[in-house]
């Protein structure tokens, strides 16, 4: 049966420590200077009425991925589990998908000269029933990953309990990565 993966990022727990960022580099051998994953931390408001915003910058694994529909060679494709991947050999690096991604999740691997992005660590971890590297190392367990169609999975339970926000939901991309927004601090 096809999986319904979901990754939940709890902004309330995230402390912006970048463990996920480094874990991703180590696990996936991401070349120097480029990132599959970063967490951007921004301060909002006017002193002393402030809020802190934590934003996970990475592929959100759309159910309706614009990067796949624009790809002229089929190098960008969606697996039967709905994960978006790239066939390196078929990528001509036309960069159309990079421009099509509303999440700015794609970039060119400067060593291989092909387009690259987060894969949920599919080859090295997920296909072996391991959580993606970022989820596994998260210092404060702010990341939860699993199959939302399994009623008893952590993500399914969390999804029932919390109000989830899907990034740029209005675009209709239906991301598999979603977040629990911060409850504290000034919102702008």
């Amino acid at each position: 049966m096809a999986k319904a993966y979901r990754l939940i990022f709890d902004e309330n727990l995230c402390i912006g420590c970048q463990a996920c960022n480094v874990a991703c580099r180590l696990e996936n051998d991401v070349p120097e200077g480029v990132y599959r994953l970063q967490v951007h931390v921004t301060t909002q408001g006017v002193f002393p009425h402030l809020g802190m915003h934590f934003e996970r910058r990475s592929c959100v694994m759309c159910d309706e991925p614009p990067c796949v529909s624009v790809c002229p060679t089929g190098a960008s494709f969606q697996s039967k589990d709905g994960l978006v991947h790239i066939h390196e050999s078929q990528c001509i690096t036309c960069k159309y998908c990079i421009l099509a991604c509303p999440y700015h999740a794609r970039f060119i691997n400067p060593l291989k000269n092909v387009v690259e992005k987060c894969t949920f660590c599919f080859d090295s971890r997920l296909s072996k029933a391991l959580d993606p590297a970022c989820v596994s190392v998260c210092t404060t367990e702010a990341l939860r990953f699993g199959d939302v169609s399994q009623e008893n999975s952590a993500v399914a339970m969390l999804s029932r309990k919390e109000t989830l926000l899907f990034p740029k939901a209005h675009l209709g991309t239906k991301p598999k990565v979603c977040f629990i927004p911060a409850r504290k601090g000034v919102k702008v």
Binding site: P72, G74, I92, V114
Partner: peptide, 25 residues
């Protein structure tokens, strides 16, 4: 301008009707 100009032949042997680039080709 392709990152890998020599692999342009993929454009000719693959067709994605949803891709404007494919239609353009």
């Amino acid at each position: 301008d392709l990152g890998r100009p020599l692999s342009f032949y993929w454009l000719l042997i693959r067709f994605n009707p949803l891709s404007v680039m494919s239609l353009g080709v």
